[in-house]
Amino acid sequence: MADLNGHMWPTRVILCGRPNAGTWWWEGAAAEAGGIVVKPKTAENPHNGPDYLANLRRAYDEAMFRCITEGAPAPTVGGVFSDWSDKAAPAGNILDGFVYNPALPVHLGVDFGRRTPAVVWVQQQTIGGALCDVVFDEVAPDETLTPELALAMLAPWQRRWGARSTLYGAEPCRWRIDVAYVDPAGNAKNPQTGATDVGILRRQSDPGDGLGGGIGALVVTTTAADRVSVSAGLTKLRGAVCPGEGPRRLLMTRELWDRGMQAPAKERTLSRSLMQYAWKHAEAKAGGGSEHPSTHHVDALRYWYIGARWGIGAGGASAHIGGALLPRSGMVGVR
């Protein structure tokens, strides 16, 4: 950091008073020359009057109250997932201590996204006696076509997470892929190649045409009229985020949530997508307008929910597989 005379001083302390979630520069500041980040919270201010917090709670809804007093993420006006909670499960949607189980199926949600795709990994586990769906990884490369996206989906997790010896109790490996629930727009043929995104993903091997060898797993889409509606899918997904009664059963790992909220400002992540996605973005998408950056991760999650939890309507679904699953689709422990 430079002073008015241009002299550079190492950052020692950043006092952050923003009523918002963590930003990408916090970790950098903390790592620079032993610097630390102090995040004071209104809720912990010893100078608050006796009724100050109580008055704030009466004046704001829960999300805005926590934003102002605890530094929780700022709610989006008209947000689809305003009930998403960054508290630990079962009260909230964030899961601490997730352990990947290579013996259990893993489902993917995939949005091809007009060269800005997004993929989410989901594994169902019993958490605290309740059967929960846990989102534990993501990939969202920009300016990427489907052959390159397939390679990113098959890459070992350390390609996305960097220098870590273990993640979720697993050494560097490829997560297994049992089923990929994908954007039905992926059935459209490319006028130059004649191939479809769905067809490329479902490949069992590389035929040498420059479009790659797919992911070697079941690929499912739906064209059922009651399920392709953007608003209908979001409403169902919103109910999974916060069912109203009982434990929340759609969770995200603490590691994935924190990484997404602290990523560089322009990076697309599921954490930010859930915080930013508003009904106006859904309406624009349904009307064929421009897509907000927040739509792609939520759409990937929506396609997963439509296929894995809402079910596939008779006559309205297509499941693509070119034979037996390749061993690589379930491979774990590959370095």
Rank of each mutant, 00 (worst) to 15 (best):
D3P: 01
N5V: 09
R12I: 11
L15G: 05
R18S: 13
W24I: 07
W26Y: 14
A29P: 04
A31V: 03
G34V: 12
G34E: 08
V38F: 05
N45E: 10
N48K: 06
D51R: 12
L53H: 09
N55K: 15
D61N: 15
E62W: 05
E62M: 05
R66F: 08
C67H: 07
A72P: 09
P73S: 04
A74W: 10
P75L: 08
T76A: 15
A88P: 09
A89C: 12
A91R: 15
L95Y: 00
V99N: 02
N101W: 02
N101T: 08
H107F: 06
G113H: 05
R114N: 04
P117W: 00
P117M: 06
W121E: 06
Q123V: 09
Q124Y: 11
G128W: 00
P141E: 09
A150P: 07
A150C: 15
P156C: 10
T166C: 03
Y168T: 04
A188R: 11
K189P: 03
N190I: 08
Q192Y: 03
T193A: 07
G199T: 05
I200F: 05
L201P: 02
L201M: 09
L211I: 08
I215P: 03
T221S: 03
T223H: 05
A225K: 07
R227N: 08
S231N: 13
G233T: 02
L234N: 02
L234F: 12
L237E: 01
R238Y: 04
E245I: 13
E245Q: 15
G246H: 12
P247S: 00
R259K: 15
Q262G: 13
A265G: 02
R268S: 14
R272Y: 01
S273C: 13
Y277N: 05
K280W: 11
H281A: 13
A286G: 04
E291K: 09
S294F: 11
T295D: 06
V298Y: 01
D299C: 10
D299E: 12
G307K: 04
G316M: 11
A317R: 10
S318C: 08
G323V: 14
P327E: 05
R328H: 09
G330D: 10
V332C: 04
V332D: 02
R335H: 08
